[in-house]
Design a protein around this nucleic acid. Structure first.
Ligand code: MN
Ligand code: MN
Ligand code: ZN
Ligand code: ZN
Lengths: 153, 153
DNA sequence: CGGGTATCTGCAACAGAGTTGCAGGTACCA
DNA sequence: TGGTACCTGCAACTCTGTTGCAGATACCCG
């Protein structure tokens, strides 16, 4: 019976790491620690994360600031992640859910700036002025998330 | 019969300037040259303008960079202007067309960047996660306006 | 018409977010 | 087990927006 093996400084949860690496190689690039760590983090995050939050979350395993920007750009370019700008004009990143990332809405917290993906159904298309062409429709919700609204402060 | 009077360094087109000043006073603030110039410019602009573009357009009449930011913030706060972040994470400003600025939706043209206020009914509020507080709900429509979609180009 | 005063403006200094260039390291293939 | 194209890290920079404060001024009032 083999003992559980934990490779160089990696946390347990090997299979999630492997999965991230596989996705990256499948996209035609090297599965470097930087990319693997970031993609794994995004895939496990409950909300869209900013560059800064990602840096924080990586803790000891943090990358160079610029490298993180480049990794995120690459993830977005390949479609493994997507990026949307929040109220404070910073970008937030989230893993592209295996399925689709089309028909849902976003809730943006005015307190912390985080973006939450909701399951809200796509709203019905309204009438537009003559000659207007509609390409995208999105429900934009604003307010305070549970954490920012809650009693804590 | 009174001769036409043109006040200190103002271009002819007095009535547009006066109109801007009136809107500003009605919002409960001083009709300073900075605010009047910026609002008049936004009201005559065919597209949404960035801070930088506004600075350029004002030419000799340009304000201090910071003052311009503050004027724009004020215009947005009072509802006299709209701000929407473009895809490159810079803000673009346009004069608000409608009278009311509560329950309506916006159409953003990907061609010219203009923001159009629509009469579309506010969509029904969806279910939110526990503890979330909703403060604003908005339908965000994207596409091409009649002018940008039309035969012209 | 003049003041008085809350409101605005301009300047300087700062902060956050993202970019560019380049020298050196390394994942992957042969 | 190399070789090399692809990545990473560092430094320096740009662009966008913010804050604090001293001085100016639009507007109200007499
Ligand atoms: Mn989403
Ligand atoms: Mn509007
Ligand atoms: Zn929040
Ligand atoms: Zn247009």
């Amino acid at each position: 019976m083999k003992p559980a093996i934990i490779r160089n400084g990696e946390q347990p949860g090997e299979s999630e790491t492997e999965r991230a690496a596989r996705l990256i190689r499948r996209a035609g690039a090297r599965a470097t620690p930087a990319r693997v760590r970031v993609l794994r983090l995004l895939r496990s995050a409950p909300t869209a994360l900013s560059h800064h939050e990602i840096e924080q979350s990586l803790g000891d395993l943090a990358l160079d600031r610029v490298t993180l920007y480049r990794v995120l750009d690459w993830l977005v370019a390949t479609g493994l992640a997507h990026r949307n700008a929040d109220t404070r004009r910073t970008f937030r990143f989230s893993a592209a859910s295996g399925s689709e990332h089309s028909a849902h809405s976003h809730f943006r917290c005015d307190g912390c700036g985080r973006v939450f993906c909701l399951d809200a159904a796509p709203p019905p298309p309204p009438r537009l002025p003559e000659g207007f062409l509609l390409s995208r429709i999105e429900l934009d919700l604003r307010g305070r998330c549970a954490q920012c609204a809650g009693g804590a402060q």
